[in-house]
Design a protein around this nucleic acid. Structure first.
Lengths: 142, 142
DNA sequence: CGCATATAGTTGTATTATACAATAATGTAG
DNA sequence: CTACATTATTGTATAATACAACTATATGCG
């Protein structure tokens, strides 16, 4: 029974998440973890934003973002600019060192993906990226 | 600069892992978590195995597997059969209730993936499964 | 205007999944 | 038979998350 195409996706997805989780636990590249990376990515794409906006965009609880932001601030990667129109709120902004370490980390990640897919065709890379994105969108929406 | 194909994979992969992690935290389907699921999958495919073998096959630390096994045993999903040739070792074996709840959980997961990919072509599903597998193999090996 | 409610962010606490290190019990080889 | 290796467990730590409680501030209504 069952749809073998779905079964394959289902199993490989479980394996993938485990592998990546496992890597995160030990093989952390540099000073940045995946979650901080996504937060910084968001800041670098969207510009300075507050905890609430970030939490919405990243689909995380504000408490989670708040802690990540605190940790990044401690490392000097983001600074908190008070929102002049609302004294409860801040804008989180990447610092210079944040930006440069973010780029360095991104490069290290890309190198890793380069190696992982070194024997793939560009067509495969393209499909994989597209399908991952499509899948992520589905998860976000459904 | 950089390779846009790789950048897309890299980013979407980070997002994917977060989404799935997030789902695991709240939306747990039934009584089984992803990690227990993979362990039970392994047992159902490979038959009764010891902690060490499982850890090797799943590429996890033995301590991690040992705890998962203990938790599954507590739920009555696996039983420990002493290895007659080595009194340090056990075989973990799925119980009936383990098998049936595993199948039920698997079905729930498949339903979920069915929905997530409901507007995909079979060709896309096939490609996604293949590429995920290929990627997982790369991670395991490189 | 002032109180009630809403909102931004932080902090306390819990859960899940993992690793590494130390240990106990048992096996094995010289 | 002793020294070393191996199987599994347990202690401890880390990362990433959520929910709930709280603080401070904002807003809107009577």
């Amino acid at each position: 029974m069952g749809n073998p195409l779905l079964e394959k996706i289902e199993l490989e997805m479980a394996v993938l998440v485990r592998r990546v989780t496992s890597i995160t636990s030990k093989n952390k590249i540099g000073n940045l973890d995946r979650s901080a990376y996504l937060l910084m990515h968001e800041l670098s794409v969207e510009g300075p934003s507050g905890v609430k906006t970030l939490a919405e965009n990243l689909q995380l609880d504000t408490s989670t973002v708040s802690r990540q932001a605190a940790s990044l601030e401690k490392k000097g990667y983001v600074s908190k600019i008070p929102d002049p129109t609302d004294r409860r709120a801040y804008f989180l902004q990447l610092t210079e060192s944040g930006t440069s370490d973010f780029n360095e980390y991104k490069k290290a990640r890309l190198d890793r993906f380069e190696i992982l897919t070194e024997d793939w065709t560009d067509e495969e890379r393209k499909q994989f990226g597209n399908l991952l994105k499509k899948f992520n969108q589905a998860i976000s929406e459904k």
